[in-house]
């Protein structure tokens, strides 16, 4: 008998729904969009894509025969994508974050390069979990992606409200590092996240 998708899902727990569904719910559970928000986002995308197109084609007018449909189509993808909560960026936070990010990514790369080249290869890998207070959508995704570029940490999995982080050296102070990252991302998005002590 041919297996249906549901049966297989039961048989192999690795590929079933629970975990990913939780992740999706997390995105959806946030406050619903106010009416017109999608159109506003569509307009923002339109402007951003038009700028990209303009720079790519050196603002040539004859390119617009292709440009206008492409920009409209690209921006219209807003309407098929799952809903995400809105966000805004604080300019001061952005400059701060960019500088800090540059320094951290150099530190992260140098750290991993040293470990790779060192004959002893000092690794003490392991997993730890961390529960960020950031709201879903862009701030959380930004947080998860930036973890990967910090020294010694990699965001391995999202389980419910927790993120499971893989560390090259489990002796490092994960709580402090990620707490700092969280504060900086909160500042970048102009959010008010209460500071947390180590748990």
């Amino acid at each position: 008998m041919r297996k249906t998708a549901e049966q297989t899902a039961e048989q192999t727990p690795g590929h079933d729904a629970p975990r990913p569904v939780r992740a999706t719910q997390m995105v959806l559970r946030d406050t619903p969009l106010p009416p017109g928000a999608r159109w506003r986002r569509f307009a923002v995308k339109l402007v951003a894509l038009a700028l990209i197109w303009g720079v790519l084609t050196e603002f040539r007018l004859d390119a617009l025969y292709f440009g206008v449909p492409a920009i409209l189509l690209g921006a219209a993808l807003v309407f098929v994508m799952p809903v995400a909560p809105g966000w805004r960026i604080s300019p001061a936070g952005a400059v701060n974050f960019a500088l800090w990010f540059a320094v951290q990514s150099v530190r992260g790369a140098v750290d991993v390069a040293q470990r790779a080249f060192s004959p002893a290869m000092p690794l003490r890998p392991g997993f730890r979990s961390y529960a960020p207070d950031l709201p879903g959508g862009a701030p959380r995704v930004m947080f998860l992606n930036t973890i990967t570029l910090l020294p010694g940490t990699l965001s391995a999995e999202v389980a419910g409200d927790e993120v499971i982080v893989h560390m090259l050296d489990t002796r490092a102070d994960l709580e402090a590092d990620l707490g700092a990252l969280e504060a900086r991302i909160a500042a970048l998005f102009g959010l008010n996240v209460k500071s947390r002590g180590s748990t």
């Binding site: 899902a9 729904a17 569904v21 995308k45 994508m81 959380r140 999202v158």
Partner: peptide, 27 residues
Amino acid sequence: APAPALGEVWQGFARLTLPAIVVVGTY
């Protein structure tokens, strides 16, 4: 076959890149 489930990191990536891919492909 059941599609591998992709979480919120993926969704953020798709939201950011797909519109840009449309423009770059047309370019």
